[in-house]
Design a protein around this nucleic acid. Structure first.
Length: 735
DNA sequence: TTATGTCCTG
DNA sequence: CAGGACATAA
């Protein structure tokens, strides 16, 4: 039984019919949650022991899930944290690290199972480090051969091996500039090789080395050299690409500066602006020098860094441009023609710049992803480096495919789906037809640069619900103008995405809260239509939890509907209901209390109807009626209390308080001056109906209002045709 | 099942 | 005003 049935209704005068039926209501998880919250937080139900047990179980699983999520988030954060101190760290090393973490966590989670209470963070960390500590002994390579256990043979191989290993490690070190990874690899190395070893240790070491049979070693050598070649080749390609990019950028910058010059010559107040542009130019050259220097020691991380830096520079330039334009605008000294021209050019340039940068970043990322895809599995499995920590319970997971690794990688990165939306939409920026606010661009550009696996590489990702929603929302974001329903659609896309992503758990309290949050924010988004984020990114844990657990039941969450919505993005038909529509609906309520959905479609012809719009409109009128009937009941009771005995005394005029209350609700600004007389009549009839029913004591019947509703629904009048016009409000209010 | 409506909550 | 739970008619 739901809580309000048991608690609230006790104190209520009006009993709902389904109070009785309520017994039938299944004890769904959601009600259990509600109950659990009541139990846990209000301690209002000290005797519900059975339910408490149930609740604790459910709560537990939920807690575990959120633990997992928190962990994932934390890992994602720690990934970013780790990135920060080591800007030179290669993506590969980071990838390895994140994978180590990721694998550790997922493995353990699988082990522990969702119901286990041991899935605590500390436990995981312990297990992780344990596995890494014990891995040298525990690891069993599939290539190991028992016949290599002879001590002499080992010794013969030893030096050879050592040389090879040194080479391999050089390669790895060349790839990874990350100090921590390098150090860790070194530690591992010293552990086994360079320190003076006791016989026992050396035995252990030899035992470990047996895991590399000679044949394997030979092929490994070949692989290493082949890989070197490959890397050189890719290096060349990347270098060339970067040079091309830089060339393009320089050209674009020159265009920019031409504009600067043309305006600067006319205005000497822009000294600091020129300085800024100079600075960015010097930054550019300096950075270029640096990158040229590092070109010989190329690694993909630098490409990304470089790309990011370039984006920032371009954005700075663009911003300066914008500021300058603003300045000119303010001064407005006959520059209007030049200004318009320049602005247009600037817009074009900005767009070009942005799309170029996106392409470049994407291609670099793709390159990198490809190279890592090829190289990782070849090089790393046989080498004894920290991936040993992947081994859990003697099982070696070094042989995970790169796809898996990348999947994990991206999983961690996309821990905040909202950010992911942002990324998606910006990585498609070739579609972008209008300049987005710089802040947004900057943010997302950086993000897209820092999420390499999200580029074209992960084709499966593009089939995912996430991308579906992104694909849906990006056209919406492209229209900065009236998109009030964006919130609605956004919410539905969230609901849909999470629905598909993680199954059918739609009963967490968080999800409810999230829904409310989005709901309450929805209207805000409506009025500030460019606010892309109904859910604050300030609370990634709750947001993400809400998303993945949530599975908001969304009435319009069908892909079909979303496709409908998106397919209409280009037309003049609005995708959603605006405050204007609400106002219009309220005015229509003066004529009709029970509009049919067909009628609504006729009168809101400027809205693209789908199921969700229809139900929203219907809901509006339902809410209007609710208010209307509440007022009626209130005034009826009031008049009874005031001693009114005959319905004849009950009249509704434009002066009456009842009318004022209603008018205040449906016509707040009172700018609609043609409230039909019929409305007053209907209101009066309703009031009398309520009065009679109450006097007759019918209100003891839980459904006593139904009879009244039946009467009232027949009193609808025709809505004037003016309301069919999309601009009816202007016509109605300014006549 | 779906569409619609009501009641309740926030 | 919106969402959820539920009822009910079609």
């Amino acid at each position: 039984m739901p809580d309000h049935d048991s608690t609230v209704l006790l104190t209520r005068h009006t009993k709902r019919r389904r109070v009785d039926i309520g017994v039938k209501r299944t004890v769904g998880t959601s009600t259990v949650f509600t109950k659990a919250r009541v139990n846990l937080f209000s301690a209002m139900n000290p005797h519900g022991s059975d339910q408490d047990v149930e609740c604790s179980v459910v709560q537990h699983t939920d807690g575990d899930k959120s633990n997992v999520l928190r962990k994932l988030l934390k890992r994602a954060n720690s990934y970013e944290d780790a990135m920060m101190p080591f800007p030179g760290a290669t993506i590969i090393s980071q990838l390895l690290k994140s994978n180590a973490n990721k694998n550790g966590s997922t493995e353990l989670n699988l082990q522990a199972g969702p119901l286990s209470s041991t899935g605590s963070e500390a436990n995981q960390e312990d297990a992780c480090s344990n596995s890494s500590r014990e891995s040298p002994q525990d690891r069993i390579s599939p290539f190991s051969r028992p016949s290599m256990s002879q001590f002499d043979v080992d010794r013969l191989c030893d030096e050879h091996l050592r040389a090879k290993r040194a080479r391999v490690e050089n390669i790895i070190r060349g790839m990874s500039h990350s100090p921590n990874v390098a150090i860790r690899g070194g530690e591992n190395d010293r552990e086994g090789g360079q320190q003076p070893v006791s016989p026992r240790d050396s035995y252990r070491e030899n035992k470990r080395k047996q895991k590399l049979p000679q044949q394997q070693q030979q092929s490994f050598q070949q692989l290493a050299t082949a890989r070197k070649e490959q890397k050189r080749e890719e290096r060349r390609q990347l270098k060339q690409q970067l040079e091309d990019m830089q060339k393009q950028l320089r050209q674009l910058q020159e265009k920019f500066y031409q504009i600067y010059d043309s305006t600067d010559s006319e205005n000497d107040e822009d000294g600091n602006m020129s300085e800024d542009s100079m600075q960015s130019e010097t930054n550019d050259t300096r950075a270029q020098d640096r990158s040229d220097n590092e070109m010989s020691d190329l690694d993909p991380g630098h490409f990304l860094d470089r790309a990011r830096a370039l984006i920032r520079e371009q954005e700075m330039a663009a911003e300066n441009e914008k500021l300058k334009r603003g300045g000119h605008l303010r001064r407005g000294q006959g520059l209007s023609s030049l200004h318009g021209e320049g602005k247009q050019l600037a817009e074009t340039l900005k767009h070009e710049l942005h799309s170029t940068m996106s392409q470049v970043v994407d291609s670099v990322v793709k390159m990198f992803a490809k190279s890592s895809h090829h190289q990782l599995p070849q090089v790393f499995p046989p080498i004894q480096i920290p991936q040993a920590r992947f081994a859990v319970n003697g099982e070696n997971h070094n042989f995970h495919t790169t796809n898996q690794r990348l999947q994990c990688f991206s999983d961690v990165i996309i821990s905040n789906p909202l950010d992911a939306f942002g990324n998606m939409h910006v990585s498609n920026s070739s579609d972008q037809t209008e300049a987005l606010p710089l802040v947004v661009r900057k943010n997302s550009a950086e993000q897209s640069a820092s999420t390499p696996s999200m580029g074209g590489h992960h084709s499966s990702l593009h089939q995912s619900p996430l991308s579906a929603t992104a694909g849906f929302s990006s056209p919406a974001f492209r229209h900065p103008l009236p998109l009030p329903l964006m919130a609605y659609s956004f919410q539905s896309s969230l609901g849909n995405a999470s629905n598909t992503v993680s199954g059918k758990d739609r009963s967490s309290p968080e999800s409810l809260d999230l829904t409310r949050e989005t709901a309450s924010l929805r209207t805000k988004v409506s009025s500030h239509h460019m606010n892309h984020r109904p859910c604050s990114p300030m609370h990634p844990p709750s947001t993400t939890e809400g998303l993945s657990l949530s599975l908001i039941k969304s009435e319009c969450g069908d892909l079909q509907d979303m496709a409908e919505i998106s397919s209409y993005s280009g037309s003049t038909i609005q995708e959603g209901l605006s405050p204007t529509h609400l106002k219009k609906a309220k005015l229509m309520f003066f004529y009709t209390r029970y509009p049919s959905s067909n009628m609504l479609k006729m009168f809101f012809s400027d809205v693209k109807f789908n199921r969700c719009i229809t139900s929203q409109l219907i809901k509006w009128f339902s809410n209007f009626r609710e208010f209307y009937y509440i007022q009626m009941e209130k005034f009826a009771r009031q008049s009874i209390n005031d001693g009114v005995t005959s319905t004849e005394e009950l009249t509704v005029s434009r002066d009456s308080e009842l009318y004022r209350a209603l008018n205040m609700h449906y016509n707040k600004a009172n700018d609609f001056e043609q409230v039909p007389e019929r409305f007053l009549e209907v209101a009066q009839i309703t009031l009398r109906e309520f009065f009679n029913a109450i006097v007759a004591g019918k209100d003891v019947d839980p459904s006593w209002k139904k009879a009244i509703y039946k009467v009232i629904c027949k009193l609808d009048s025709e809505v004037p045709d003016v309301f069919k016009s999309p601009n009816c409000l202007q016509e109605l209010l300014h006549e």
